[in-house]
Design a protein around this nucleic acid. Sequence first.
DNA 1: CCAAAAGTGTTTCACTTACACCCATGA
DNA 2: TCATGGGTGTAAGTGAAACACTTTTGG
Lengths: 215, 215
Amino acid sequence: MPYTYEYPRPSVTVDVVIFTIADDDLKVLLIRRGAEPFKGKWALPGGFVNMDESLERAAARELKEEVGVSDVYLEQLFTFGEPKRDPRGRVISVCYFALVDATRQTIRAASDAADAEWHSVFKLPRLAFDHRQILDYAIWRLRNKIEWTTVGYELLPPKFTLSALQRVYEIILQKPVDKRNFRKRILAQGQITELNETRADGAHRPARLFAFKAK
Amino acid sequence: MPYTYEYPRPSVTVDVVIFTIADDDLKVLLIRRGAEPFKGKWALPGGFVNMDESLERAAARELKEEVGVSDVYLEQLFTFGEPKRDPRGRVISVCYFALVDATRQTIRAASDAADAEWHSVFKLPRLAFDHRQILDYAIWRLRNKIEWTTVGYELLPPKFTLSALQRVYEIILQKPVDKRNFRKRILAQGQITELNETRADGAHRPARLFAFKAK
DNA sequence: CCAAAAGTGTTTCACTTACACCCATGA
DNA sequence: TCATGGGTGTAAGTGAAACACTTTTGG
């Protein structure tokens, strides 16, 4: 541990990989950069950490500013700090990943960005800085996590059908999932409750709705 | 992403949780602080990140300085950045955890610390800053990781007996492990090779030595 | 020959996987 | 009545857990 603070200090930012499911696809929010370097290129939303806010609060603030939501799933991902990752100087980026349910997201124009858009993670443009690497890592984490935990629910509204949840898994894992085994496994986890409601909109047999127990 | 760097900058340090197995116990290297705050208290080894070195290099450097080893297992753990975690000002700490095998560690006195010592993680003194929280998280990660991966080998010398490896697991998990199932499981992983050597020192039946394949 | 650690297989149980048909509804 | 997505069970296979005795060596 240091004795002194008379030491050159790097800049510290938080970048947030914000995922959602929309149009039957896994999407990530990207911001088109309005200034150099990488002007016009797409980048992850992010910004400086204020001196009086925690890292997680900074990430939550970004999320609020860029997507206009709070109380969503937010997890620290990794801290990227290669000396040359930003051409302007030493910037250390503490990265987070967030899961936002498709019905809540309402993108706001970010104050420091020309444009914000949801992009399919399977058809990504060229990204600024090392953001492609960050995003790839986030996808890898999401895929692992969905197999061992219950984060999948975070991408759905409070009431959802099992078919919708299954689609979330299929989209993220990019492989078909067996319907019967999926339902058995999910129900066996005991984390969701069957509701006495069905979905009204479909043209076919109405699907039973479920809800995630703890949130 | 920021436009400007005219922004207050926090200090950034790396702290390293260095584990080893010694005296049939899981040990962590702690440094006695020689200055305020927390003067005289034990703390994790750590220090500032130089402007031209990566975070991982900074952690490796600390490891080299404090324990005198390189080429050991090193993994980023978490970044702690609560605004009040250091009474002197805003300090963000990128934490790593390292696994050092018991035969290699030769503690050196650290340049900025009065003393460095291995402590049992089960009999810890009061630690400086939020280092207890960091250490608890590192132990949790180690326990998880050892169940799903092969990091256990990193705590042993290149040639080891299966009994020694089993003890590593028992010490970390703090529960007895079934010998036959353990051997089956480890061998089935296909990550270690049986050597044509036995351990010479024991007073009883000599144990076969094994080696980790990829390192 | 005794004490102590090394080494070795089989059975049981739980969980995962593969797989195909009927149901309910709106058009 | 038909097209479409919703919903259900069983059998086989795979991996984890429980469990006790024989072997080899040094003293």
